[in-house]
Nucleic acid binder design. Sequence first.
DNA 1: TCAATAATAGTAACTATTCCTGAAAATGTA
DNA 2: TACATTTTCAGGAATAGTTACTATTATTGA
Lengths: 130, 130
Amino acid sequence: MRRTKQREVILDELVKLRTHPSADELYGRVKKRLPRISLGTVYRNLEILSREGIIRRLETAGSQRRFDGDTGDHQHIRCVSCGCIDDLAAGADRARCDALVAKGTGYRVLGRRVEYLGICPSCRKKSGGS
Amino acid sequence: MRRTKQREVILDELVKLRTHPSADELYGRVKKRLPRISLGTVYRNLEILSREGIIRRLETAGSQRRFDGDTGDHQHIRCVSCGCIDDLAAGADRARCDALVAKGTGYRVLGRRVEYLGICPSCRKKSGGS
DNA sequence: TCAATAATAGTAACTATTCCTGAAAATGTA
DNA sequence: TACATTTTCAGGAATAGTTACTATTATTGA
Ligand SMILES: [Mn+2]
Ligand SMILES: [Mn+2]
Ligand SMILES: [Zn+2]
Ligand SMILES: [Zn+2]
């Protein structure tokens, strides 16, 4: 992976933002510093950077993909009204946690979404893995 | 909301599937029974049915939207290899839960994704709500 | 310095979804 | 029944987000 001006600026802008921007939002920021950059370059570099583990691609619902310059272990809270996403310290412990999260973020907590990730029985069989 | 043949068949196929299909997959099924139906109609009816609370629109990551005929409170587990989504009984309790989930589903559990949902401070201010 | 290689800008293509339009079906009224 | 009103329909165009392609430019290493 080469060091290019574009990649540097994209990473720099993402890391200094704490707002989990979409490619498009980031493109807007980066363009102020590199007016000739294209949206495709932003997408390509976000893809490369997340593949390398330098940034994190958020696996959240919604039509637009979002990215996070913080690769540390943490969860997120999303506003059901405006769609913004804020950080949550790692570790959370069910119902009474809602109060802690609310206190920590200022959000009114309405619910939480939990999705487990793994390898399904049929895929385990196919790849012969344990 | 009127009762139409199309809506009836879409709902029937969704409820009897336990696979959380995308609109497209469901369209394939429904077309066998109603060969003249269009994908647009499937989308429109899934939208109407979920607005009425008769079905559930899954808020999962991934490029395609998925739907669930089961509106009861439950979480999901997704295979990171093939992308399939299975049900999880409601209620889960952190780390040692992974073992329970693995036992219950046959998955190899790799992780979990927790996202809280709520109203952010700035939206609370705007709408004057508590 | 200079060829080899990787990345870029610009744009076309692609995919999932929504929107639009005129026709058909369902429903209400008499 | 007959007709008007409303809802939903199929089909296709439009849109949004993303990826792929291509000719050009920048970076790298000998
Ligand atoms: Mn974050
Ligand atoms: Mn389910
Ligand atoms: Zn908000
Ligand atoms: Zn699988």
